[in-house]
Design a protein around this nucleic acid. Sequence first.
RNA 1: GCCCCGUUCGUCUAGCCCGGUUAGGACACCUCUCUUUCAAGGAGGAAACAGGGGUUCAAAUCCCCUACGGGGUACCA
Length: 507
Amino acid sequence: MVVRFAPSPTGPLHIGGVRTALYNYLLARKHGGRFILRIEDTDQTRYVPGAEEYIIEALTWCGITFDEGPHIGGPHAPYRQSERKAIYAQYAHLLVEKGWAYYAFDTEEELEEMRRRFEAAGMVAPQYNAITRSYMKNSLTLPPEEVQERLQNGKYVIRFLVPRGREVRFYDEIRGWVSVHTKEMDDKVLLKSDGMPTYHLANVVDDHLMGVTHVIRGEEWLPSTPLHVLLYEAFEWEMPKFAHLPLLLRPDGGGKLSKRDGDQLGFPVFPLRWRDPSTGEVSEGYRERGFLPEGVVNYLALLGWHPSENREIFTIEELIEAFSLERVSKAGARFDFEKARWVNQQHLRAVPTARLVELIRPLWEARGLPPVSDEKLSMLIELAKERAALLPELIESVRFYYEAPTFPLSSEREGKLNPALVENLSEWIVALRELQSWTVENIEALVKHRAKSMGLPLGKVLPTLRLALTGEESGASLYHIIHVLGQGEVVRRLERFVEVYGVRPRV
RNA sequence: GCCCCGUUCGUCUAGCCCGGUUAGGACACCUCUCUUUCAAGGAGGAAACAGGGGUUCAAAUCCCCUACGGGGUACCA
């Protein structure tokens, strides 16, 4: 099995493209096949610098790797279509010789005029086809001498000659048989006047030359597949199998998820941050948002595919094992950011704390937070881990550590303080200061013991202490918080609290 | 407009090919439980076969029509 991912470097890869790459990758790995990256840069006007590097970096981050591609080479190099230009021209001319294609010389204005004319005659979207081509300037209508003359000038395109009266049928691995009549098809340009191929030609030629056995791509290609089928027939090449993946839809139901949706949806549509080189506009990525690559990949796999068992959480290796084209659904899938978060959370919980320390440290430093040892950081992460779905939440939920509470508290929170405890707090500070061994167990014992001797339930004691130490009403285990804060800091914070509330509690 | 593809809880989906299920799971939501609290966990709840015709003893499942959604309709991919 040989599959390929063939993006066009016109900007950042969006999340739907990542899924297409993922399904190809999964299949290649499952069947021990090869996976090729091919850059489809035949439209020179749409080339965006940095896009190719972005695509490779994004897929690498996701753990999607290739066996051949522009970045690693391979037996079918080059892998950029712009560098294969001569190959396509040769094959386009071959089709002309075989009578499957012809030269056309119409200018843009002439094409425009043709469309206007036929529209006026009642056609809605006139195409260059069996009925209109006879009115146009091409090697089918012009005398041979004029054709020769125009070819000398070098300004021509090569168009496919769609045969008449045929039903083109092909089997789609996901949708079953699809058929289209050739009267619905038009004479698509194969070779552009700049000598570059269009997608249709380049894709068929390269897939054949590179030995691709399974063409797995987005559903937007379904309507042009009949043309590709005819192209294989014209070249007398063996056809690959086709599979058209359902599209990723916007959560609001308004069409397919597109690059332009950017951040307006409230969640990233790109795997990595992207800075548009011409406008300077920056779009957020899943990586920067704090997703784990395994979380993104897992969620994406689930959008349009369902395993044979009722299970949602998979590592990439498990996905390789479980994936199959037969279980890909036909209908478009709406992106659900909440569920993506949940899937990521499941993975986050499984990540060893040591790795989280490595992931969090750069974020910690980027925020300019006070230095912490690896040991402290991993204690903090342990505390935050259970309630975080995304990486930055790991830092946000230990805010108490790097940000002392500010007093006075809001009146609502003051209402939750226990007056008896507040009055007695100076004695607690002494006890805490004198605690010999600062362990979670000892702290817990001390708190419980003093609460008991005061006749106060933990439900009164703990919230008050929490407010005094963190300013928050909820969060991780308070005994652990006290422990990680350290004896000195706990005493300092409580003393500050007493300065404000101790003498005459406002409660 | 025309062509192609699609349509099961709010969302992702199982079930459809090989008719007979209390139409299953997950996210989100609600209730209860555990917990100092939040989260997580546990238990439970509400929630769907687009509509209409056939075929059949029996249709989410097979056939047809309609509606709706999406994609395509470039010298873009």
